[in-house]
Design a protein around this nucleic acid. Structure first.
Length: 559
RNA sequence: UGGGGCGUCGUCAAGUGGCAAGACACAGGGUUUUGAUCCCUGCAUUCAGAGGUUCGAAUCCUCUCGCCCCAGCCA
């Protein structure tokens, strides 16, 4: 179904050609290389899907490799979260790999560079290194330590490893070209001293390799064929290639860069998301308003919907800002197929059916999914007092309003036709209840006389329902680009991104709801039980996404 | 202003010299016990702009314009 006629995106084209040309013997191996310094977000899902899908499509393998070469920022909790999230998304990588597992070999490769005269220990302090580097428009100048002998370099490097120096005293640098127009080639640092315990190697090391060195070597050691990364590493590719060309590694993977994902009305970077959490704008990393994968999972997003979305947006080198509507469309697409239907009234309005017997309770049958009889039926109860949505009644309805109004007849979904006879108000003039009559002949929702009714509304039995809190989410920011023109994005936070309704009435069947099991509350949207704040006595449901609402569109009402 | 990239419908995105796919959105219409779903129909004479090559250009060449990234002992 998702198989289209075109050849796919540019990366797929490259890989296909490589396979056809028997490059790497036709083998394909990719990797998803997160740094365990935070949680994953939807932007990472793009990379995860890309890497795993390419591997699968060409009968290869995709590794999950943690790029853990900076112990100052990395933590085991992030490793655990990332692993669990990748699994949740539906991908299997076998066992996770770690760049830190290659530290010994990385040290050896650094020695190889020294022995080849291609690396040296530099004793310039940080500010000096920066000053010597030059600027974007001016070349740098050589470090005074650039011509140390191989023996001295080897000795110094060994002492760096053995903890003889303090942080910042020395670095190991590649000897490339201080005048290169590409700043990454101006003698980049290979190893630096960092006296921090590492989540996996503990106190074994006090020097750690830098990203550029670690990444390409790790790729090579794992036999990666295509190393896919984001655009900002384009400038690093010459360095990636330089290291591999000068080291006795088993292979030379090809780095290919693609554009990161952006989505409107939200922000997508670990740093910004962390700031929202730290400043308390959201309740945590898994706040359902966040585009973090844990947040989306709690919100009710399904892995299938996220995968479909990543598929749909495809991959290119163009910077883009994707309409969040596309994400929601992929979500609805999946949920429409899979979500069982139920009825829930968010803002209850009591309806008393005056001609219905006082103590009668009857059981009606409703389909779990109107287009899928194989999903079965459920039972719902009906009696004299029910709740309907406040929105579904208007005292003075316009012509095209198909719902309840004085004297108007509507169908109660799966139940009876009812006609509004009287409006009850309190002393303030607020509507407190409706008196209706029902037509006993219309049980199940059809009139034997063939009389049609334009509107069908949802309802819940007042005496047999579940009271719950329901949280309605809206976009987190009011601006498409929350940082437009360099603005502080927290200034564009949407104050109405969360609305909590305290007294919702839900059909009794929903007491069986479980987190991540999404229901469609008919006519309203998709909802799921919250995994954290819900208790048996006080259930909390999150609105995953609304239904498409063309009526709201004509009335100009917001979501 | 050094270097590296990118510019095809409102938003993503195919297209790789032969005469602009698809999706979302949008606008109409049909079906409907969810104003949902589903189903039709419409929606770029034009590919950032200007020249050029060619029988023929979004695709090749030249110039111009716009946007993004790079000066961490971060990744």
């Amino acid at each position: 179904m998702e198989e289209t006629i075109n050849r796919g995106h540019f990366i797929e084209t490259i890989i296909r050609q490589d396979v056809e040309n028997r490059k790497n013997d036709g083998r394909v191996a990719t990797r998803f290389p997160p740094e365990p310094n935070g949680y994953l977000h939807i932007g990472h899902a793009k990379s995860i899907c890309l890497n795993f899908n390419m591997a699968k499509k060409f009968s290869g393998h995709c590794n999950l490799r943690f790029d853990d070469s900076n112990p100052a920022k990395e933590k085991q909790i992030y490793i655990d979260s990332i692993e669990s999230t990748v699994h949740w998304l539906g991908f299997d990588y076998g066992t996770a790999l770690f760049a830190s597992d290659y530290f010994d070999r990385l040290y050896g490769f650094a020695e190889e560079l020294i022995e080849k005269g291609l690396a040296y220990v530099c004793s310039l302090p940080g500010e000096e290194i920066r000053a010597y580097r030059g600027t974007l428009t001016e070349p740098g100048k050589n470090s005074p330590f650039r011509d140390r002998s191989v023996a001295e370099n080897l000795d110094l490097f060994a002492r760096m490893k053995n903890g003889a120096f303090e942080e910042g005293e020395h670095t190991l640098r590649a000897k490339i070209d201080m005048a290169s127009p590409n700043i990454n080639l101006r003698d980049p640092v290979i190893f630096r001293i960092k006296k921090a315990p590492h989540p996996r190697t503990g106190d074994k090391w006090c020097i750690y390799p830098m990203y550029d060195f670690t990444h390409c070597v790790s790729d090579a050691l794992e036999g990666i064929t295509h190393s896919l990364c984001s655009l900002e590493f384009e400038d690093h590719r010459p360095l990636y290639d330089w290291y591999l060309d000068n080291l006795s590694v088993p292979c030379h993977p090809q780095q290919i860069e693609f554009a990161r994902m952006n989505i409107n009305y939200t922000v997508l970077s670990k740093r910004k998301l962390q700031l929202l959490v730290d400043q308390g704008h959201v309740a945590g990393w898994d706040d359902p308003r966040l585009p973090s994968l844990e947040g989306m999972r709690r919100r009710g997003y399904t892995p299938a919907a996220i995968r479909k979305f990543c598929d749909t947006i495809s991959v290119s080198k163009k910077e883009s800002r994707i309409d969040v509507g596309l994400l929601e469309s992929c979500l609805r697409d999946d949920l429409n197929e899979t979500a069982p239907r139920a009825m829930g009234v968010l803002r209850p309005l009591k309806v008393i059916i005056e001609n219905y017997p006082e103590d009668k309770v009857e059981t009606l049958s409703a389909m779990v999914h109107p287009q899928k009889p194989e999903m079965g039926t459920r039972e719902i109860t009906f009696s004299k007092e029910i709740y309907v949505e406040q929105e579904d009644f208007m005292e003075d309805p316009p012509k095209k309003f198909f719902r309840l109004g004085p004297g108007r007849e509507v169908r109660l979904r799966n139940a009876y036709y009812v006609t509004c006879r009287e409006v009850i108000k309190d002393e303030k003039g607020d509507i407190t209840a409706l008196i209706c009559t029902y037509d006993p002949e219309t049980r199940g929702g059809n009139a034997p006389d063939g009389r049609k009714v334009k509107g069908t509304i949802h309802w819940v039995n007042a005496k047999d329902c579940l009271s719950a809190r329901v949280r309605l989410y809206d976009r987190l920011f009011t601006q498409e680009d929350p940082e437009k023109g360099g603005q502080d994005f927290t200034q564009n936070l949407n104050p109405a991104s969360l609305e909590t309704l305290g007294d919702c009435k839900l059909e009794k069947n929903l007491s069986k709801a479980r987190p991540e099991k999404v229901f469609q509350f008919e006519r309203l949207g998709y909802f799921c039980l919250d995994a954290k704040d819900s208790t048996d006595r006080a259930p909390v449901f999150n609105r995953t996404v609304t239904l498409r609402d063309t009526w709201a569109k004509v009335t100009g009402k917001k979501r």
